[in-house]
Write a protein that binds this DNA or RNA. Structure first.
Length: 604
RNA sequence: GCCGAUAUAGCUCAAUUUGGCAGAGCAAUUGACUUGUAAUCAAUAGGUUGUCAGUUCGAUUCUGACUAUCGGCUCCA
């Protein structure tokens, strides 16, 4: 969070971080301080507790102490130093705060000239501010220490891991309570919970493995419908479909430079013993190298470009155990992948077409809350990014230019690029507020070189194509996790596992209901007749809880008049229409992929 | 992988504080009821309390290790 967003709240959160640090110091005087900034929902402070282990019981003690400090109305006093005298000052004021010392050195290296300290009560911290006037201004019922987590110093795994204490903080108790309520609500619509309730997916860690999803019949319907839609739209946009194996020899990934760069994200190889040397096979972590070989298998004229190769390709990545999360991060994923091989002068137009296709897809799914991230090289660990600097400059500028021309707002994500080039990532937030990349478009000047890919230009000479990697619908796994949450499990008719549930009022309506079901089935609609011995009310309830988009009530009247009463999920008004009209209506609705309800979006 | 929390029936949760035969609702099964817009009644079944050790006459409860899940860090679609 930044000061300009909401100065008062920023100061409250920032000051609470200092109060937390003071409370922690009171109980553990030897603790060393890291950073303690305000964030989206409150604040955190990083501590080095040495050998002491902190648990949630400590949070209660810290909270009590924080309240005491607030009641003491300690004044925040600012003192200023320059780059010349700050190190002397801190050696005197905070002799043991080694992380603060390191921070000052880093800031000076970056050219920072002015340094400030803030003191309240016995606590003093290097900090640029700003703060409330005194601790009495802090909302004693507006904050709550939330959780403990490990966090690496300066965000690097190579550094020591500090203990981070997260606090929630708002201006009033009402706002805090409302946030907690929203969080509870979000838990209700968590895709893992809905996935279980609606029979979408299942995981069997002991027998299959963690992060390896078993898709149940209902979930598979959703996957298949999305895939069918993707194939239609890609057909219209001129894509050709390909299929590639899940396994490949190690040599492919030497050519592509995945090895050794990407090796730690890959499953270890299968080794086939051979007389001279062993042959190693890897499960593919990406589809691109295979597609490049397909492009390279034939000679191409400049007239053939852009060439668009698409595959819903299944990939395997050995994500570290702590990184796995429901369907959002898995170890086996099926990607809405395609690679576009084109001439540089075609880039702008093709990029625009691609964005246009993304928007068409998002409109269908009614996804509107996302942001574009231009993901570029990072200054740090530059060894991660392959290829020369000139190439990266060119690619990064090209993406920025096209985004500007399209008038699309974006923010820059340093160090977020792929190893072979920069990309536009499309970021969504899940219900719990966690941001994830869903779609991506990447520019790649490197792979065509690595694979020796060419086309013959107007002058009859070989030229190297540019490659766009794109995945608008992400992976089935991640995309469906977002749909589940955004829709609260209630899918539109076209991709709903069961599209129509027929509820006969009495047994003498069964024949009509069965005939209707048979007719719908012959039109490829997914339909069931609820013949359970439940009461009518219970049937309504069961089918509603299962979030079935269309319920048909069939009683004596409907049988007699060859009609149906349509009750749609989440819509109060029922429709009474003829059987023929209903079938026509629903067929059209499915064909057009109509969505009646607005998705929730992120609620935190 | 690291930090913290959690693990009881298919699901949601009790009991364990002080070690002594593990309990409810929903779901399931069976029977009765055939119902006009969100829970009909009754009966039955369902558990090596995540796994493996240790302490103990006795462990679901105490100790330790492991595994998995959740929230973070790092990594990423």
């Amino acid at each position: 969070m930044e000061h300009k967003d909401n100065p008062k709240l920023y100061e409250i959160r920032h000051s609470l971080a200092h109060v937390l640090a003071q409370a922690v110091q009171k109980k553990y005087p030897d603790v060393k301080l890291g950073f303690g900034p305000p964030v989206e929902t409150g604040f955190y402070y990083d501590f080095d507790f040495g050998d002491v282990q902190i648990n949630e019981k400590d949070l209660k003690d810290f909270t009590k102490q924080m309240k005491k400090i607030i009641n003491q109305k300690q004044e925040f006093v600012r003192s200023e130093y320059t780059a010349d005298n700050v190190e002397e000052a801190i050696a005197d004021i905070l002799p043991n705060e080694t992380y603060k010392h390191e921070n000052i050195r880093n800031l000076k290296e970056r050219g920072v000239k002015d340094f400030t300290f803030y003191q309240n009560g016995p606590f003093i911290d290097l900090c640029e501010g700003l703060h409330v006037a005194h601790t009495g201004e802090l909302p004693i019922k507006g904050f709550k220490l939330d959780s403990i987590a490990g966090a690496y110093w300066l965000g690097s795994e190579k550094n020591k891991q500090l203990t981070r204490i997260y606090g929630l903080a708002f201006e009033t108790n009402e706002e805090l309570r409302s946030y907690l309520e929203r969080r509870q609500m979000a838990e209700k619509f968590d895709h893992k919970k809905l996935g279980k309730e609606l029979g979408i997916f299942h995981v069997e860690p002991d027998l299959v493995g963690k992060g390896l999803i078993l898709w149940l019949p209902n979930g598979t319907v959703i996957r298949d419908e999305i895939e069918k839609y993707a194939k239609e739209i890609e057909f219209r946009y001129g894509y050709k479909r390909v299929h590639t194996p899940h396994l490949t020899k190690a040599e492919l990934y030497h050519t592509s430079q995945h090895l050794p760069a990407y090796e730690e994200s890959m499953y270890p190889p299968m080794v086939l013993p051979d007389e001279d040397s062993d042959t190693k096979y890897y499960l593919k972590p990406m589809n691109c190298p295979h597609h490049h070989l397909i492009y390279g298998s034939q000679q191409h004229s400049y007239r053939d470009l852009p060439m668009r190769l698409a595959e819903y390709g299944t990939c395997y990545r050995f994500e570290r155990s702590g990184e796995l999360s429901g369907l959002i991060r898995v170890r086996c994923m099926t990607m809405n992948d395609a690679h576009i091989y084109l001439r540089l002068d075609q880039f702008e137009e093709e990029f625009k077409r691609t964005i246009q296709m993304y928007q068409e897809l998002y409109d269908t799914f009614k996804l509107s809350e996302y942001s574009f991230r231009l993901s570029v090289r990072g200054k740090e660990n530059s060894e991660k990014f392959k290829g020369d600097a000139a190439m990266w400059d060119k690619a990064e500028k090209l993406l920025a230019k096209v985004m500007d021309e399209l008038g699309l707002d974006y923010f820059v994500g340093e160090g977020e690029g792929a190893f072979y080039g920069p990309k536009i990532d499309i970021q969504f937030k899940n219900l719990m507020g966690r941001e994830e990349t869903v779609s991506t478009i990447q520019v790649d000047f490197l792979s065509a070189q690595n694979f020796g890919l060419t086309f013959i230009n107007e002058e009859g000479k070989e030229e190297v194509p540019v490659i766009i990697h794109r995945a608008p619908l992400s992976t089935h796994e991640r995309f469906i996790s977002f749909l589940l949450e955004y829709y609260g499990g209630a899918f539109p008719t076209w991709c709903s596992p069961i599209q129509v549930s027929i509820i006969p009022v009495a047994e003498d309506c069964y024949a009509y209901a069965d005939a209707l079901a048979a007719e719908l089935t012959s039109d490829f609609m997914r339909v069931k007749v609820d013949k359970s011995s439940n009461s009518f009310n219970k049937k309504i309830r069961n089918n509603t809880v299962q979030k079935i988009p269309n319920m048909l009530i069939i009683g004596a009247k409907e049988v007699e008049e060859e009609s149906v009463t349509l009750r749609r999920y989440g819509i109060k008004e029922q429709e009474y229409l003829s059987r023929a009209d209903f079938i026509a209506l629903l067929k059209q609705e499915i064909a057009d992929r109509v969505m009646h309800r607005e998705p929730m979006g992120s609620i935190i």
